[in-house]
Design a protein around this nucleic acid. Sequence first.
DNA 1: ACAAAGTAAAGAT
DNA 2: TTTACTTTGT
Length: 577
Amino acid sequence: MGIKDLLRFMKPHIEPIHIKKYASKRVGIDAYSWLHKGAYSCSMELCLNSDNNKKMRYIEYFMHRINLLRHHKITPVVVFDGGNIPCKAATEDDRHRKRKANRDLAMVKLKEGNVSAAIELFQRAVSINPSMAHQVIQVLRSENIEYVVAPYEADAQLAYMCSLEPEKGGIVAVITEDSDLVAYGCQAIVFKMDRYGNGEEIVLNNVFDSVARKPSFRNLDMELFTGMCVIAGCDFLPSVPGIGIGKAYALVSKYRNLDRVLSVLKLEKGNLMPEDYLKSFREAVAVFQHAQIYDVDTKKLKHMKPLPENLLQFLNGELEFLGPEMPPSVATAIAEGNLDPISMEAFDHFVSSGCHPDPIVIQTSCQLSRPKAAVVSTQESFFTVFSSHKTREHDIAEKQISDSNEGKYLKEAAALEKLVMPLEIRKTVDSSMVQNRNPMKVPDNNPFKKMKCDEIQLDQTESMTEQVSVAIDVENFDILCVTPYSSTPLEVLDKSSRKRRLNDICSDQTAEQVSGITEVEDPDILCINLESQESVNSKPIKAADGKRRGKTEKSKKSNSKSSENKKSSILNFFSRV
DNA sequence: ACAAAGTAAAGAT
DNA sequence: TTTACTTTGT
């Protein structure tokens, strides 16, 4: 992935940093890298498309990192990949084949009963599809996180945004795992960011300016650098056999002109060079320089940099390799996450998983009906509220809602001791509600938060209710993640099977608390994920110590203090609801 | 000296 | 998975 061996080669220009360096700045995120890492934790479930809620773990992973950034007062701007460009087809094909081979092997191991071997293989078989991206997008919407789906390569979109002023939707750095960003000319890139925010950074200007560092790039410009990357081998074009990053660097710094470099290359490796290498090379370089991106300002597709006349001549005006053009309406629908960029079909607003036609997810309940609460939750208390379910007893729910007022729910907060917190929230789908979708927190110039009324299609119900249940451990006042973000309602279960199911859903570190929820009454359970700021700061995650289920005296005590904080934030939260 | 392929060990989830 | 190191060939 990316430029072969580039990061190793550029090691002297890479510096360890902490992400808090970008406090108060807008930072772009290559969503693919987080989706992919997150998918490891539930690769089997994703590959088998099981109904298990565990397959939503990648969203937890994703949001955990988003919350890390927010904790450091960074404004994340998430960029998703769009369609595939023809140039990359060979690479994509290759990956697809490998994944399929791994998947098939995994199935064999699974049938043999070798689960651990199967999981290992499934991890190599996971692929990220638009439906997964869409799931994350729905959570991002509910959390008021800015995002955009690139028409094609997210990398190009990110590099373009990096060149814009922050006031115009620009970003100052990009978090990714993909070395392509360097070839695109992205100014500041953070690689290998871990869960604590430590990462490795390349700042392109420093690379070109540096006098001391070993492979010197002082005599190169961006075009030569990009050329070097392509010669070394990239996703768009494999390198000529025998040519790696070292040779590419040597050629480019010696001849300082891509035409000359290619002539020399042809002279030396002519026999090993494909017929159309020159054309492919020019196209690959052109992708890094002129890829199609979405211009948020004009809501149109645009080239990163305009194509110069001589290049157009060289290509005979054939620009197909950059990906087909598309009308602004389509580009916008893709960018805003309403249109699947690969199948070109509209995402169903109500079916988040793509395989459960029954349940619904639109936005978080809090944002829909109570924008204020949503803002409070995201900014101050690290609350994240996901997913909701349609209740079937419309009538009952409606009645409860119309009778209820905010105070009623405040009273409910006192029911923490009961471990259950049902919360009926009215959601009447009409135009007034739709307007509420655009909370005040969102800046006016952000097109991604706006949703047009006519894009919301309701076929079955005019009026619906969302039921929100929060299960809380009395001892710790920890909120349990129950149904993670999904639209799948838990089946109606008897107490013991529910307990088992909850254990199944919750991760190991909360499993001990799950034993406390025997009294959950509602089959529709929503996940509310609470994280205190301290816990994000110092030890974001309890060590996943799966073996230790029993609660020790020690942990009980150390929890009690922050429990008070949590309790007050919980009460605080519900008092605003 | 470099590229490419292989190996082994560490790291993440 | 990535990283670092080894071997082989040019």
